[in-house]
């Protein structure tokens, strides 16, 4: 501090060229104060994300704790019925979990092949101008509110499918699965295209020099080279599908149903949370606590997917 004071003081004497006469020491002091305050405020804003994560974990765990005091974790994980609001209450997460995985699985069946083909097309084939035109359209597709997708699944896709599949239930897992596939498609495309474009051109040139077609270059060089990134896209897409709420709450019904038949309706974990929220269960009741137990399960599953996905993404970024 004394050195700085000397500098200012010396400068204020203004000998020689004396430029620093222009600097007012009290201004410098105020400036330093502002800089310090700004730094603290910015840091606090950035650390907000840590507090939010901590708050989420805290709320989910404390509310679930009360739930698990009544229901054992073993019953929660193995009971095949979910009837918390009945007099003969069962608290088995399996029906909700299986419906969630079924719908997400159908979504992936759409998004994985379509997403990979589109990503290869955009990164290896499409001329730059076309790519610039397509990407915003994909973004708009990703920007459609989920409640609108839900409407679309229930009132457009399901009736359409019923024309070909007379046995299809009004509430079913197929239609929301398909719609969700379209919904996560832009995300899968953008993450996997990112990974493909990170593959260095020198590798592609090597393949072309050997007389490979574009297709074979993509198949033998680009896709293997971008493999971890593409896998990340699938996994992160899966995570989104698992956490998606409105499409399934609207179109898959709200009836817990342990089945492998996608033409039946079944409540997913998210749909169950919505169903309870729409009713009016008293704060603190076991019914109220169930949604936090389900929420915790959902959080853990998506967190796992996200960690694996981000780890894979980081890996390809390190390679190239």
């Amino acid at each position: 501090m004394s050195d700085q004071a000397a500098l200012i003081g010396g400068a204020a004497d203004g000998q020689g060229a004396g430029g620093s006469v222009l600097v007012d020491p009290s201004f410098l002091w105020r400036r330093k104060l502002k800089d310090r305050i700004a730094r603290v405020v910015l840091f606090l804003s950035a650390s907000l994300s840590v507090f939010v994560t901590a708050a989420i974990v805290y709320i989910l765990i404390t509310e679930s704790m009360s739930f698990f005091e009544v229901v054992s974790i073993w019953d929660f994980l193995t009971d095949t019925q979910w009837t918390p609001l009945f007099t003969d209450a069962h608290y088995g997460i399996l029906p909700l979990l299986s419906a969630t995985l079924m719908v997400s699985g159908i979504a992936l069946l759409v998004a994985v092949p379509a997403g990979t083909v589109l990503a290869v097309y955009l990164s290896e084939y499409a001329p730059a101008k076309l790519r610039e035109a397509i990407k915003p359209i994909l973004e708009l597709l990703g920007g459609v509110p989920t409640v609108v997708y839900g409407y679309f699944a229930l009132l457009f896709v399901t009736p359409l499918l019923q024309k070909f599949m007379p046995g299809l239930n009004g509430f079913n897992m197929l239609a929301p699965g398909l719609v969700m596939g379209i919904m996560i498609l832009p995300y899968v495309v953008s993450v996997s295209e990112d990974a493909m474009r990170a593959v260095p051109d020198t590798l592609r040139e090597g393949a072309y020099a050997l007389g490979f077609s574009r297709f074979h270059t993509a198949l033998r060089v680009v896709i293997p080279g971008a493999f971890s990134g593409i896998t990340a896209a699938y996994i992160l897409g899966m995570s989104r599908a698992v956490g998606e709420t409105m499409v399934v709450a609207i179109a898959a019904g709200q009836n817990p149903n342990l089945t492998l038949n996608p033409s039946e309706g079944a409540a997913t974990m998210t749909a169950y949370i919505v169903q309870v929220s729409l009713g009016d269960l008293p704060h603190g009741s076991i019914g109220y606590q169930t949604i936090f137990a389900v929420g915790l399960t959902l959080f853990v599953i998506t967190l796992l997917f996200n960690i694996i996905g981000f780890w894979l993404r980081r890996r390809y970024r390190e390679v190239y």
């Binding site: 050195d3 700085q4 000397a6 500098l7 010396g10 400068a11 004497d13 000998q15 020689g16």
Partner: peptide, 13 residues
């Protein structure tokens, strides 16, 4: 100069 401060001094701001 003329003050004689060390520009690269560790304590110099």
């Amino acid at each position: 100069y003329p003050e004689g401060d060390n520009i690269v001094g560790a304590k110099t701001d």
